[in-house]
């Protein structure tokens, strides 16, 4: 009797193991949450210091077109207009996404609908390889190949938004393609069967049913690609020219939030306005990537397939 009582009331070895397992995994997740929260806190506090401590007007920062934090403008305020970089970032992101999307959809349709065998055996590994190439390699190729080509074809120095778009296009294409492939393969087989059984050709089935049903997934892929393009620093910095002025055309040197950040952060002193305003750029980047993430979530939720 006592034996049974003891066994029921005391925790068994298995129960304790379970407790330990739960605790360990909870600590791990807690660690990640703390790290993310710490990054947010750090970037936000540094980035907001520009406005709180140094008294820069937030709208001057967002919409000002002159960037030279070390010098003072005619009105006695430092020149902290980030609009050239914001415009540059959005331009390269949007342009590269616009160019990459049709290619990605075409490639994905080929890989899933037209020739799944070649797609799986040859194209999938190639795309995975492309994803794994370090961005400095893309940047270097951009610098030695794309920039001269742009210079010869369109004139100017070759550095600028156009060269940046080309490089980013190649960089995000594999990501967008493989995510589009996932979106197309997630379209249930019975949609295809129903369409074919009604006398549709394969092509009609693909564009009237499969692509249409996969729109949310494809949008997610594109937004994901845009998030990558927006955050890419190294490769874009090598080809865009890094002139913090409003881009006058696609082939004149420009800059992005990331390129100015990587250029400047090592050359400024912590705690000064020049440094803080760079953190403000970082804060913008962080908020944008948060925005992209939320967008992906929202689109993804809409596109779930009920079986």
């Amino acid at each position: 009797m006592e034996d049974i009582q003891r066994r029921l009331l005391q925790k068994s070895k298995k129960a304790r193991l379970e407790q330990i397992g739960k605790t360990v995994s909870f600590i791990c997740i807690l660690f990640i949450v703390v790290v993310v929260a710490a990054i947010f806190y750090f970037v936000m506090s540094k980035g907001l210091a520009t406005f709180v401590k140094d008294g820069v007007n937030f709208f001057d920062f967002l919409f000002g077109t002159e960037w030279s934090p070390g010098t003072v403008g005619a009105d006695g305020k430092p020149l902290t207009g980030a609009l050239p970089m914001i415009v540059g970032s959005f331009l390269v992101t949007l342009l590269s996404a616009i160019v990459a999307t049709p290619f990605a959809i075409g490639a994905a349709v080929f890989m899933t609908e037209i020739s799944p065998k070649i797609g799986k055996k040859i194209l999938q590994p190639v795309i995975e390889l492309l994803v794994g190439i370090p961005s400095v390699v893309y940047g270097f190729v951009g610098l030695t190949v794309v920039v001269p080509v742009v210079r010869r074809t369109f004139g100017g120095s070759g550095f600028g938004i156009l060269a940046g778009t080309f490089v980013l296009f190649v960089m995000i294409l594999p990501t967008v393609t493989s995510m589009t492939v996932d979106a197309l393969t997630a379209v249930p087989r019975h949609y295809r069967e129903a369409s074919l059984a009604l006398g549709a050709t394969r092509w009609q089935t693909t564009y009237k049913v499969v692509l249409r049903a996969a729109i949310p997934g494809i949008l997610t892929a594109v937004v994901f690609g845009m998030a990558r393009a927006f955050g890419e620093a190294l490769a874009i910095q090598m080809v865009i020219g890094n002139a913090a002025i409003m881009p006058a055309s696609l082939i004149t040197p420009a800059s992005t939030l990331t390129s100015i950040l990587t250029m400047g952060i090592g050359n400024t002193i912590m705690g000064t306005l020049e440094n803080n305003v760079l953190w403000s750029l970082a804060m913008l980047l962080l908020l944008m990537s948060l925005f992209f993430n939320i967008l992906i979530r929202i689109i993804g939720k809409k596109g779930e397939f009920k079986s």
Partner: peptide, 12 residues
């Protein structure tokens, strides 16, 4: 024409 085991209307 063909009707399948699982109802399979398009998501339209």
């Amino acid at each position: 024409g063909m009707v399948f085991q699982q109802p399979n209307p398009f998501p339209f």
